[in-house]
Write a protein that binds this DNA or RNA. Structure first.
Lengths: 218, 218, 218, 218
DNA sequence: CATGAATGAGAGTTCATTCAT
DNA sequence: GATGAATGAACTCTCATTCAT
């Protein structure tokens, strides 16, 4: 039993190694330029070995994609415990962008890359990706109910907010944010989120204490 | 001189033909699937001929990119004659998204695709791309001056607005906007822009007359 | 001794299992498409295990070939008890073709396939294959002695008869007999044999009673 | 015009060279063992060059196959001018076998090899291959009308005769005719054909003068 | 100016086989 | 005895690119 377990763990470690290596190479050179041979060379195995762990190149991509969705989901979940729906949304956006910037290869694979194969992609997206989206919609609804947002079609607002964070993340990932120094990005994101969310309401953002405060004279 | 000119014009016409053909093919099947041979076949020349007009495949891409930036710039210019800065911004965003959705392959090439070669990319972007961005910043400043926006770092607001429209456009281009039926996209974009811009101010959006009206009790 | 025997029997059973499985797969998809891995998967052993019982892929083929020759020999033997040499020959041909059509993959391996390795092939053929051929020759001689055939070189007649049945069998196996419906093949073969054998003599074939009868005026 | 023609001729010569080389290699090592690389090496070109002349490996095979059918058809046509249907059939068979033995690679490809791709194969066969078969049937009919053959289903007799010559040819090609010395094969074939055809009738074969003679009581 | 012909480099993938455990 | 893991050596096929003509 123990032996079998160790074997399985080793197998799993190899898969992980391949995935990690693939991801590093993706980051370096972009997906379209990565070959099975590249990956094999990097991990110092033969190309044929890769095929012992993955059916084909696409499977590696799909696995990484799914992994990405799972990671993102986890990452967001933790930051969704806040009571106030607006602050929750704020945190949610922050987490989303943080994930994207900390895992640009994953993010690219998940939302920016041209889909390699249509069918599976959508299946994947639905599974976990849509779960994330539904979460966002719930949040939006609560904000609307709380009067933070004008009453509108929820899908439109949700999509708008998603577009906002996606736009920020993807422009930065593609190097379009050069006007902000590396170390200023975080605070820029913060302010951008405020620009979107807080100014919509009577509330103000307390920059000192990093929290939203009710407006005085409202 | 006249002969020389005609020669040059012919040369230029051929370049145009190649570019146009390449773009059509890109639109049909996506860049990654287009080969020099494809383009050559379509225009009924030999692949070698392409190389008389373009150094290599990348040059075609770069030229198309620059073309895209020019087209976008033109497209936006026309819609920037409005007096009111907020309405101007609104129109600007609308025009931007419209361009992206009507020319997805250009847009992909300009803002979504991984830069094939670093050096040239940045040169290009600066030239015309940054001109567009500067235009946006001017606009933002005027909105701020007019009290439409909270007073903030202009770069942040400009980048935020850009992110917003980029996010909307690129998610739709990548097929993430499936929750909106094809024919509903335009009105969704409209509402999304309102969500971003109008609700920020005391003003209201007059849906009947398609224009921003001053808020009643302000 | 008993233990050793059991060991050997187990070994032999495993060989049999591998051979049987290989044959089934060959039948399904043709040799060229069968891999050691396929066979291993079917019997739920590892590919490496196959190599404990067979030196290599070729050995499996050779063994099956030999097996085929043995099977054919057995199949023919049963049908060679008839007294009349001509009828015996008729039955012999029928049995040969029947074997081929019922075991197309064996037959392919034995007589149609390109020999994978020269050396072994000939050894095999001589052993049992030639035994069959000698049997045929004896038969032919008896027919000749009985006046059924013109007096000719026995080898030529034997080879001719072999060619005949081989031709019929192999054309059908390769799908060249499409002019005959599946269920009509058997009677076609029957008639073809009559065409060859019976019309050579004064004898007639009694279609009713399925036997050769002496011609009236002989 | 002349230049264009020469170009075309050169192109055609290259195709021919590839086909011829492929055929030689097939003969040497069997189809299944021939690779595009092999062929390329032999003609001292790069593998990619092959693809300028043939879409893929299969196209080479199909072309050779069709070529084979055409060659066979031509070969047979010349020998079908004889008046007497039986002699014509005799000559026909002789020509068939001669073609097979002189062009074993072609013959293998046409009638012995496992079909690489089903669809095209049958198309090809029908076109020219079936033309040959129809020719044979016509011949058989005439023989029957002339009383040389018992009255039977024509398809059965035609198929039987085809089987006969195919059997002879394919056994020899696969090396099963070792009992006949190389130089004796031709006369063996002759006698085998007589065994099949002449002894069926009252006619006799005049070995001296190489012709069939009627003989009532001879 | 245009191109036919050619190719180097490399893509993904498969398979018989080996060997330490 | 059985095998998991690994691989070398191939395979077919594609593509951007070059160059003599």
């Amino acid at each position: 039993m123990s032996i079998k377990q160790r074997k399985e763990q080793e197998k799993s470690e190899m898969r992980t190694l391949i995935l990690k290596t693939a991801m590093n190479l993706f980051l370096e050179k972009g997906f379209e330029n990565i070959t099975i041979r590249n990956i094999a060379e990097k991990i110092e195995y033969s190309p044929a070995t890769i095929y012992l762990y993955f059916k084909n190149k696409d499977e590696i991509l799909f696995t990484l994609r799914r992994e990405g969705f799972e990671k993102l989901y986890e990452h967001q979940k933790t930051s969704l415990k806040l009571d106030d729906p607006l602050m929750r949304l704020h945190k949610h956006g922050e987490a989303y962008i943080q994930f994207a910037l900390e895992n640009p290869e994953y993010y690219d694979l998940m939302f920016m890359m041209r889909g390699p194969v249509k069918e599976m992609q959508e299946t994947n997206d639905c599974d976990i990706g849509l779960a994330s989206y539904e979460l966002l919609k719930t949040n939006v609804k609560e904000c609307m109910d709380a009067g933070h947002f004008p009453v509108m079609n929820i899908d439109i607002v949700a999509f708008s907010l998603w577009s906002y964070v996606h736009g920020i993340a993807s422009l930065i990932i593609r190097g379009r944010g050069i006007m902000f120094p590396e170390e200023g990005i975080k605070s820029m994101v913060e302010e951008a989120l405020n620009f979107m969310l807080v100014s919509k309401t009577e509330k103000k953002w307390d920059l000192e204490n990093k929290q939203i405060i009710s407006g005085v004279n409202v």
